[in-house]
Design a protein around this nucleic acid. Structure first.
Lengths: 213, 213
DNA sequence: TAGATTGTTAATCGATTAACAATC
DNA sequence: TAGATTGTTAATCGATTAACAATC
């Protein structure tokens, strides 16, 4: 029963809680207090308790939180027990890495198909999934229940294909390109990963530190 | 002359401004007002003006901002004209993708060497850069001016190698692993990219939307 | 000059932190 | 019971938005 309107800041902290709890759990630790978790995560006890209480009272006064229990709860909140069917479009270097690197099943998804424009790559296989020609996308999406697409191709390629994806019902995108999907499709759920932006902010911070220090 | 203490929110918006201005510039557009830029970027004129004025008055009253001029200024603020020498450690799928996918030179960096533990990969070449054995890192870093490392290897591998990296002077990390560098080395500049966290938040938002809609 | 748009101050809003009563 | 720690309310802090005088 996640409440409506939880702020994006809180939501972005949930996977981090989940990771730390998973680690504690695998170490066999059974309980944790917000204070101790805060020290581990370089956060504050107040923030942790506030964040969790957006979704429910998972702790026990005088005791703390059950590590395994809280981990499970956060997993449920994130919706990880589901398996949203997803396709990946763009089997270049980045697409290949994303397809092979992640444990989609643990993250609420199932990667069921990979599409690519470049004929040289079509017919090859990643993770046991055959790379198909991207003009088969529409048929595939209609025949299978696909709600999410990973876009690991250049901006221009996304621009060309996005209308087709939206038209066949895909409303959720993990977007590695610089194409601005939300601008065109206001109701789409878009998670952008802008690697170059990330690297630029690192550059800024190095530059800043050198100037001050 | 970037001022000290500009908030991380503002800094994270700079690359985005830079991108949109680059695009306008390549379209031959010479001037832009904060209002129009806000519409393009789905932001607000107020926020844009506030953000820019953390660093200086780049506009002209009654006119707006020079696209090319503002782009250049933001580039300078980000420090993109520099070329921080960086190494990449971990030439697996993800490392390969990162090494080949990005234009480091445009982002303030120069990738000068790639290291890997797996002997099968040593001697291969990415972007014309030979993949070397990771026991050559120390010597290489000492002989070359390296300030940044890209970490595209598992948490456990980072844990093993981080002390060595810090000891030979690397203070800046683009970290794709789940190892928490900042916790151990408080003065390190760390930019984390947690792909699985990103995907989990997408899962959350799909789940949330399904429940409400 | 009149119109446009910035730079900047003030007002609002929201997120984080602190405090503490409830309770295990 | 006493001690610990939560859940939750209140206080603070900071970021965003609005307003407007300055000025091109």
């Amino acid at each position: 029963m996640p409440k409506e309107g939880v702020s994006i800041q809180v939501i972005r902290r949930l996977p981090r809680y989940y990771r730390y709890l998973s680690e504690l759990d695998s170490e066999g630790i059974e309980k944790i207090s917000s204070t101790k978790l805060a020290v581990m995560m370089n956060s504050t006890a107040s923030q942790i308790r506030q964040d969790l209480n957006c979704f429910g009272g998972f702790g026990q006064q005088g005791y703390g939180y059950s590590v395994a229990g809280l981990r499970t709860e956060i997993g449920k909140i994130l919706g990880l027990e589901q398996q949203h069917n997803m396709i990946l479009i763009g089997a270049g270097n980045l697409g290949k890495a994303i397809a092979t690197h992640l444990s989609f099943e643990k993250l609420g998804f199932k990667l069921t198909a990979i599409f690519e424009k470049d004929e040289k790559l079509i017919g090859t296989s990643l993770r046991g999934i055959e790379v198909m020609s991207d003009d088969k996308i529409e048929d595939y999406v209609k025949e299978n229940q696909i709600d999410t697409a990973i876009l690991t191709m250049p901006k221009e390629a996304v621009e060309k294909i996005i209308d087709k994806l939206y038209a066949c019902g895909i409303r959720s995108y993990w977007n590695f390109s610089h194409y601005d999907i939300s601008k065109k499709y206001l109701d789409a759920t878009v998670e952008n990963v802008h690697l170059s932006d990330s690297l630029m902010t690192l550059c800024y911070r190095i530059t800043e530190k050198n100037q001050i220090g």
